[in-house]
């Protein structure tokens, strides 16, 4: 019988310093068979472990359309992420997963998309963006609105440029007021207000958002105001998750376990979850 808690050894192949306290790690599984067969979808997450330190859930920031490695982007915040930031290329870590549902890929097919990200919340969206860019024929026009506190806090800087140059992609970057520097050519303002300004029509479009909870809340509100139906709005939720398999009992909203039934939900589903979420 498979041991569901067993972390599979993986080696760090590359470390990209995204910002002062955010790093992206590129990993490959030590077991070649697993490396070949590790199947996942944008929006899913893994439990990332460092033996003797602990385990923490991270969404996958890479796309299954670009095989040969997986990537996680982590911000230094607690015990585990601190230890992750001390790792070097060649170090061994543990990965188990993938867990959770995904960004409803079927529901997105054939639609125009607007992806709204804030801070490190761009990580799961990056997985989706890469996926969609690689399967371009299946999707319509794409608007990416991404913001961070300051220009220093923007992640995936090189890639942002590439996305901006891709045909059919409109990229809008913004920083919070006061977060701009002299060279800044992007927008200045909070993500929800930039969304309103760009005003992508809800016609045949899905809006996918990820970022700090407070940003998500206002994006949901703004999107609804712009005429998006609750089932056109998609987001991912963050909860404390220890097992990833609906057993440890802490990530539930009502009867729904975020680790299994989520982390991706439409706003319609969130409304149905009711008071516990909206409270």
């Amino acid at each position: 019988m498979e041991n569901i808690y067993l972390p599979h050894p993986a080696i760090i192949k590359e470390i990209i310093q995204e910002t002062k306290d955010v790093k992206t790690l590129t990993l490959t599984f030590e077991d070649e068979g697993l490396q070949k067969n590790f199947a996942y979808l944008p929006g899913q997450f893994v439990e990332f472990s460092i033996g003797g330190v602990g385990e923490a859930p991270f969404c996958l920031a890479s796309s299954p359309t670009r095989p040969g490695y997986i990537q996680c982007t982590t911000k230094k915040a607690g015990k585990v992420t601190q230890a992750i930031h001390d790792l070097e290329v060649g170090d061994r870590v543990g990965i188990r997963g993938p867990y959770g549902n995904s960004f409803l890929l079927e529901g997105l097919k054939g639609k125009n998309l607007v992806l709204v990200g804030g801070g490190i919340g761009l990580a799961p969206l990056r997985s989706l963006i890469q996926y969609v860019l690689d399967e371009k024929d299946d999707y319509g026009k794409i608007v990416i609105i991404y913001g961070a506190k300051t220009t220093e806090d923007l992640v995936y800087k090189k890639e942002l440029e590439e996305w901006g140059k891709s045909p059919g992609v409109e990229l809008v970057l913004t920083v919070d007021p006061g977060g701009e520097d002299k060279e800044w050519k992007g927008e200045i303002g909070l993500v929800p207000s930039i969304l309103e300004k760009v005003n992508p029509s809800p016609d045949k479009r899905m809006l996918i958002t990820c970022g700090p909870p407070i940003m998500i809340k206002f994006v949901l509100f703004t999107a609804a105001k712009m005429g998006y139906q609750p089932k056109q709005i998609v987001t991912t939720l963050e909860r404390k998750m220890k097992c990833g398999l609906g057993k440890c009992g802490r990530c539930n909203i009502g009867r729904t376990y975020i680790c299994q039934d989520g982390p991706v939900f439409t706003y319609k589903q969130l409304e149905d979850l009711g008071a516990d979420y909206l409270a």
Binding site: G51, V80, K240, C243
Partner: peptide
């Protein structure tokens, strides 16, 4: 339950939804 590493062991132990930090994220 909770899972944490203690020294070189990964340990699973009882946890309670009454504790304030049961659902608290980093």
């Amino acid at each position: 339950f909770d899972i944490a590493d203690e020294d070189s062991e990964r340990v699973r132990f009882w946890d309670a939804c009454s504790f304030p930090n049961f659902t608290k994220m980093t």
